[in-house]
Amino acid sequence: MSLAITPRSAAGRWSLLFAGITVLAALVAWIILLPMMDVPSAAWVWHALGQACVGPAASATALGLVGIIHYRERSVLTWATTTGAFAAAVAAGVMMYSAVAQYQ
């Protein structure tokens, strides 16, 4: 059985693009936020980190799922990035919600 590595559908390629953007955004946000980690408002620092990457992560997840479900996308890279992006989106969502949960 031949196993494709790189995406075969357009949705898979878009998903890969947004997975790359997720990594980039998280990195830039981390670099910007690192000097602010010690102040008492650190909860909001984590919220900002989550907000930086939840959008691209959700995009990569949704695009990967669309490729897998509707366009018979079965490549290794798409499966990997879709699950990774889903994990990143959930983690970012938890980080963001935990910053405001005490006010709900």
Partner: peptide, 13 residues
């Protein structure tokens, strides 16, 4: 409502 940025997937899709 804090999770609304996740809907940023709409423009991407």
């Amino acid at each position: 409502a804090v999770l609304t940025p996740a809907a940023g997937a709409a423009p991407a899709l």
